[in-house]
Amino acid sequence: MTTAVQPQGGGGGMVDRPSSSSLADVLDTILDKGLVIDAYVRVSLVGIELLTIDARVVVASVDTYLRFAEAVGRLNIEQDKESLPELVGDLNEGGAQHKSKGAVKGALDAAGEKARDALGGDDRERHRERRSRKED
C-alpha cells in the first residue's frame, strides 16, 4: 500500500489517509456492493446464515431532527462562552488585576456554569448526545 497516514486532527486542512478500513467503512461496502454470487452459481451454492447486520443510519428521521435541534441549542452556549473573555476582563479591572491564572480560570468556569444553568440541563443533554452519537 502506498498509504501515508497523516496526523489525525492536527494541522490545517489535511486530507486524512487512514491505513485500514473501520467496521463502519466495511458495513456499507461489502454487504451490498461487489459481485453477487448467485448470479453466477446455482447448483453448488451453500446458504450460510448471515447474522443480522443493519448498521445503516437513517439520515432523515425524527431522531436526526431532535439531534440537530439539540446541537443548535448547544451552539448557543458555545457562542456565549466566546463572549466570556470580556466578562473576565471586567472582573480583572474590578480589582483582581494581578491575580494568578488559576483565579481567572476559576472565574471562567463559574461563568461557564452560569451560562449552562441559564439554559438549563446541559449535563443531561450532553449525556444524551454521547449516547446517540453514531460510530464512525
Binding site: I30, G34, L35, I37, S44, L45, V46, I48
Partner: peptide, 12 residues
Amino acid sequence: VLPLTFGAALTD
C-alpha cells in the same frame, strides 16, 4: 480483483 459480496460460499 473482482470483489464478491460478503457471504458467498460453494460446496467444494
